[in-house]
């Protein structure tokens, strides 16, 4: 097995473990949020744009651990492809394939820019 294949396997292992960790956090949040009665989706029939920072501050103030743990899981899951692209860039750098490393870097920069679109200006 060459170095690329070893690194590819390392990325594969990282993705697998990452999905499990994020899934467990979301499962914990799901169980903590679980309610037997009432319709939890009633509040989502109409769309209210409330920024994440406000939502987190609200849940923190009311000690809603289920929500906070769920958001941790969601954050972990979203960060997986980001780290995957970063690892890919590292893989190309180690191969001294600078053109591909630049392309992977551009994808990473694109992802970072796309995240900022979520902030209300």
């Amino acid at each position: 097995m060459n170095e690329i294949q070893r690194l590819e396997l390392r990325i594969a292992k990282f993705l697998r473990i990452g999905v499990i960790v994020a899934g467990l956090l979301m499962l914990a949040g799901f169980v903590l949020n679980f309610q037997l009665r009432g319709n939890p989706f009633f509040n989502f029939e109409t769309y209210d744009r409330i920024p994440l920072a406000d939502l987190l501050a609200h849940h923190w103030a009311h000690r809603r651990w289920g929500q906070l743990v769920s958001y941790a899981g969601l954050g972990a899951l979203i960060s997986l492809p980001l780290i995957r692209v970063l690892l890919t860039a590292v893989l190309f750098l180690r191969q001294r394939d600078y053109l591909m490393a630049i392309l992977a870097g551009l994808v990473l920069a694109g992802l970072a820019v796309s995240f900022t679109l979520g902030f209300e200006l």
């Binding site: 979301m26 949040g29 799901f30 949020n33 939890p40 989706f41 509040n43 989502f44 744009r49 409330i50 920024p51 994440l52 406000d54 939502l55 289920g66 929500q67 769920s70 958001y71 969601l74 954050g75 979203i78 992802l111 796309s114 995240f115 900022t116 679109l117 979520g118 902030f119 209300e120």
Partner: peptide, 13 residues
């Protein structure tokens, strides 16, 4: 990522 920061991703759903 943008939807999460804008608050559209809700754990309940």
């Amino acid at each position: 990522g943008a939807f999460l920061l804008r608050g559209d991703i809700r754990p309940e759903v």
